[in-house]
Write a protein that binds this DNA or RNA. Structure first.
Length: 523
RNA sequence: GGCGGAGUAGCUCAGCCGGCUAGAGCAGAGGAAUCAUAAUCCUUGUGUCGGGGGUUCGAGUCCCUCCUCCGCUACCA
């Protein structure tokens, strides 16, 4: 058994006090597509997500709804699990911070940081907002009615001096800068790396990493009056999943992680705090922090007050999970912010999926069904056009890998669709429906070549639209064990003489309800 | 204020170290074909490349300056 390289990829762990929204869906889909890509490319993949279930906000939300924090956590975890299933983006494991295994991992991480002399106890004084669960600098405060001081969010603040454990983050400035220098792509895209470097260069102050004002959390080793504040607790989930601290754990080989996929708002925690914690605990550092942008509905930020909060499950149900996945990964350059709208989604579904790819498959396979008795014909000698097209398709694995090096998912899809477009031009100019009458062997070759290109395109598209491509590869009678990227590097992978199933459309066109009625003459 | 990014066809954007007549996709217009999910193919753009100045034989592509937008500037899960 050859040792396949391990590839460990994670999403951030959502805070468990609310239902999933489109941002969670986007991150999960992107990470899932990367995981599938690597798996099809021969890697031994571990794909992990999780839930951040501790903290004062959990306690408060739960109390407000008359349940225990654990009940709230369970409910939210179930919602996220359902989202994973509905989006074809279920992970291999879900680390919930309330799990015993996670408590063990977080406590061990803390203990090692303490053993390194990086944790000390001190006072944490300042203006505290219970509602925001955060301290604010005096300069940030705003004046409220009657001259009272309020947090920037408008929440009331009070002066407190809380005892807290601190992490000596300040001591890690130079080591972090060296990390960014030695691994220039530790944070990607570059834009975020630059921000992080600038931030660290300004100098770091120590980090408060425990709280004693609430108790819904992991007790600090040796001081049960404190629980770990979010940083140590939540970030530790990434090592929990690999079985840490058990050196015998089967998943130990997956650490260090290959990629932590996160939203741009939490870049600092992953690119500064996390590597510092790991250095302190003398653990290996993750290979890369992969930052993605935000999604906006018609350019507007999603918010409850505007009333444009979208349930990702509703979107998946309405457009189809694969269609939604394709739209998000194709339309938004990965790493940048993006916008979505009904019109844009419909345009992608119809132009790219139904027309470019779906229709190409249908016209090719329908001709095989009608003119070749449903049996994949054998090609005669290949023309220059045949070979050129096949070569373009066979080059997709290498091109896709190159784009994936920078996690440019949209570029991978752009490259695949360029080949699909090429195949459409090929099919139109070769006119197999004319050859049917005057040169049947040539028609057979054209159909074979087109089917072959469809096979390679389908294999490469699997990470993005797993269900639809399973269907298309089934229509081409491609065996389950011949659907990896290496199989797309070989032209003429289809076996002539194979009986193909009856063709059926893979991507239906999206027709608006009103338009649908118009077509039926029901208006 | 400081640091960084962006301003290119109606829309979304490519354009690396300066060089032949500034590109792609989508949308729009015209045409061809009819195998196919009314799908496909071909043709079609008078764009001040944010404004101004400069360097150069030659500048979206380098320098200066101005305008506009955005991100970061410490503990918002």
């Amino acid at each position: 058994m050859s040792a396949r390289s391990p590839f460990y990829i994670t999403t951030a762990i959502p805070y468990a006090n609310g239902a999933p929204h489109i941002g969670h869906a986007y991150e999960r889909i992107a990470a899932d597509a990367i995981a599938r890509f690597k798996r099809l490319d021969g890697f031994d993949v571990l794909f992990v997500t999780g839930m951040d279930e501790h903290g004062q906000k959990m306690q408060r939300t739960a109390a407000h709804e008359g349940q225990t924090p654990q009940q709230l956590a369970d409910r939210t975890a179930a919602q996220f699990a359902a989202m994973g299933t509905a989006l074809f983006a279920g992970a291999d494991d879900v680390v919930r911070t309330t799990q015993t295994r996670h408590h063990a991992a977080a406590r061990e991480l803390w203990t090692r940081m303490a053993a390194a002399g990086d944790i000390y106890r001190s006072k944490y004084p300042g203006w505290y907002s219970v509602r925001d669960e955060a301290f604010f600098d005096e300069s940030e405060l705003i004046e409220g009615p009657g001259g009272t001081l309020l947090a920037p969010t408008g929440a009331p603040v009070e002066w407190v001096e809380e005892e807290s454990y601190y992490f000596k983050l300040s001591a890690y400035r130079d080591r972090l800068l060296k990390l960014y220098r030695d691994s220039p792509d530790f944070v990607t895209p570059e834009k975020y790396r630059n921000e992080i470097v600038a931030f660290v260069e300004r100098g770091l102050t120590d980090l408060s990493i425990s709280r004693s004002t609430f108790d819904w959390g992991i007790p600090v080793p040796g001081d049960a009056r404190h629980v770990m504040y979010v940083w140590v607790d939540a970030l530790a989930n990434y090592i929990t999943a690999t079985g840490f601290p058990d050196p015998e754990a089967l998943r130990q080989k997956f650490w260090p992680a290959s990629a932590h996929v996160i939203g741009k708002d939490i870049t600092r925690f992953h690119a500064v705090y996390w590597p510092a914690f790991l250095m302190s605990a003398k653990l290996a550092l993750p290979r890369q922090i992969v930052v993605h942008g935000f999604l906006f509905n018609r350019g507007e930020k999603m918010s409850k007050s505007v009333g444009n909060v979208i349930d990702p499950l509703a979107l998946a149900r309405h457009y189809g999970a694969d269609q939604l996945r394709y739209f998000l990964l194709r339309e938004v350059p990965f790493g940048q912010d993006g916008t979505y709208s009904h019109e844009a989604i419909v345009n992608r579904i119809n132009a790219d999926l139904a027309n470019d790819l779906g229709n190409l498959a249908q016209r090719c396979l329908a001709m095989v069904a009608r003119n070749c008795g449903g049996i994949l014909p054998a090609p005669a000698a290949l023309s220059e056009a045949d070979q050129a097209l096949l070569a373009q398709a066979a080059a997709l694995p290498a091109k896709s890998r190159a784009a994936m090096q920078d996690y440019a998912l949209h570029m991978v899809l752009t490259g695949i669709w360029r080949v699909a477009g090429e195949a459409n031009r090929y099919f139109a100019s070769e006119e197999p429906w004319v050859k049917r009458k005057n040169d049947p062997p040539r028609m057979q070759t054209i159909l074979y070549v087109t089917a072959e290109v469809l096979r390679m395109v389908a294999i490469m598209t699997q990470p993005f639209m797993p269900a639809s491509m399973e269907k298309l590869l089934g229509l081409l009678s491609v065996p389950e064990n011949a659907r990896n990227f290496v199989d797309a590097e070989i032209a003429q992978g289809l076996v002539a003489g194979t009986l193909l199933p009856l063709p059926a459309p893979v991507f239906p066109r999206y027709i608006d309800a009103e338009e649908h009625l118009l077509k039926k003459g029901l208006t």
